[in-house]
């Protein structure tokens, strides 16, 4: 079952290859096609309906705003344009979610390291930082509390807020990097790896075919 899933590296190529084109395409129907294909893949990967629904709802305000702003401020065929840009929001969303919802972060990075030459410094640096997310959230609260306790407040435009963030980032990145170095992690050095994944040739082919088909329909056929 798992072997029929697409490799994360392929998903990223599809995502970027089609994503960059969407920006220049002006078609409601191809956007809908992306949504349908993306949704089918998510269902095939047994992603919970609840998560998919949350995702769809979360993008609704932006899609609505896009649609509405063209109806309000558009200069040409406002209805068509409104629908193109509203559906585009969802096309992007599903295009990204076939990668972000179906593969764990670690596998995405390791696959990119193996197949797309992402350096191990980035792979393990990012993983190390991601492990600290909940501590970083706590730290952000401490930063805010330290100010309220002193009768003041940090706002988005206070450079002092960012100084505090930078100090934490400096200390913590230093600690982690020292630890990793002492554990033998060598920037640019050779490593062995137990990560193995399936990337048969047909998946490369599939990504190129999908990108080409999208190009053909969006820029040559140009449906509504």
């Amino acid at each position: 079952m798992f072997t029929h899933r697409l490799n994360p590296a392929i998903l990223l190529i599809i995502m970027l290859g089609i994503g960059l084109q969407i920006t220049f395409a002006r078609s409601f129907l191809t956007n809908v096609a992306i949504v349908i294909i993306g949704l089918s893949y998510l269902l095939y990967c047994k992603i919970s309906i609840k998560l998919i629904s949350i995702m769809i709802l979360s993008a609704f305000p932006v899609a609505l705003g896009s649609w509405w702003s063209f109806i309000a401020f558009g200069t040409s065929d406002v209805w068509h344009v409104g629908w193109i840009y509203a559906s585009r929001v969802y096309a992007y969303l599903f295009l990204g979610s076939i990668l972000t919802l179906t593969v764990p972060i670690k596998d995405i990075l390791l696959s990119l390291e193996k197949h797309l030459k992402l350096s191990s410094t980035f792979v393990y640096g990012i993983l190390a930082a991601f492990n600290l997310v909940s501590r970083i959230k706590t730290q952000y609260k401490i930063i805010r509390y330290s100010a309220t306790m002193r009768g003041t407040e940090y706002h988005l435009w206070n450079p002092g807020l960012y100084l505090r963030i930078i100090i934490v980032a400096l200390n913590w990145s230093g600690d982690l990097a020292e630890a990793m170095t002492s554990q033998g992690f060598t920037e640019g050095g050779a490593r062995s790896s137990i990560y193995h994944d399936n990337l048969p040739f047909w998946q490369w082919l599939l990504s190129f075919v999908l990108i080409l088909i999208y190009f053909f329909f969006s820029f040559i056929v140009r449906p509504w």
Partner: peptide, 14 residues
């Protein structure tokens, strides 16, 4: 090899 003072900040993996 070395063990560090802050145990939470010496792991790269989950």
């Amino acid at each position: 090899s070395m063990l560090f003072q802050n145990p939470t900040r010496q792991f790269a993996m989950k």
